[in-house]
């Protein structure tokens, strides 16, 4: 269903452009440090663990757990009116970094912290894919 007001389109920065390009191809890419081997997020030029400038973008498992979540009952932006109530979660990826996202496909009453999730991708009528997550098996 078309939204009268389009959902906000993320404005990629120079640093985050590869992340968003990956998402458009349904790939979850994170920066991986060639020096210390850690992943980090959100994107930035230097490794957040060892400050090395040597990194590459790697596709990650897309699996993780819900660290915490909230349910929006109040409207803050007209584009989300038809979604109310909707869930915003902090997903702790297996690789370490935590991402903010939505949990799709499960009623909000059934969502719990620490449930396992896997990445899905959705457009939601905004003309650009964003990463979302759905509850999955262990």
């Amino acid at each position: 269903m078309a939204h009268l007001v389009p959902k906000p389109v993320p404005r990629a920065s120079a640093e985050s452009r590869p992340f968003w390009d990956g998402v458009q191809e349904r790939k979850l890419l994170l920066q991986h440090c060639r020096s210390c081997g850690n992943y980090w997020f959100p994107p930035s030029a230097l490794c957040r663990h060892c400050l090395s400038p040597q990194s590459d973008w790697r596709e990650v498992s897309g699996r993780g757990r819900i660290y915490s979540f909230v349910v929006y009952h109040r409207l803050y932006h007209p584009a989300f009116e038809q979604d109310l109530p909707y869930v915003v979660a902090i997903v702790a990826l297996q690789e370490g970094p935590r991402l903010l996202s939505n949990i799709a496909g499960t009623p909000w009453q059934e969502i719990r912290c620490d449930l396992p999730v896997r990445v899905a991708f959705g457009d939601d009528g905004r003309g650009m894919m964003v990463p979302q997550f759905s509850i999955c098996d262990e």
């Binding site: 389109v9 915490s68 932006h77 912290c113």
Partner: peptide, 26 residues
Amino acid sequence: DQEFGPEFGYFGAVAAHAFGARRHMH
């Protein structure tokens, strides 16, 4: 924020603190 927030409908200080409350409850 221009990314990693508003596209998911994440706005405001209420939600930020509600994350903490939820995890504490858990």
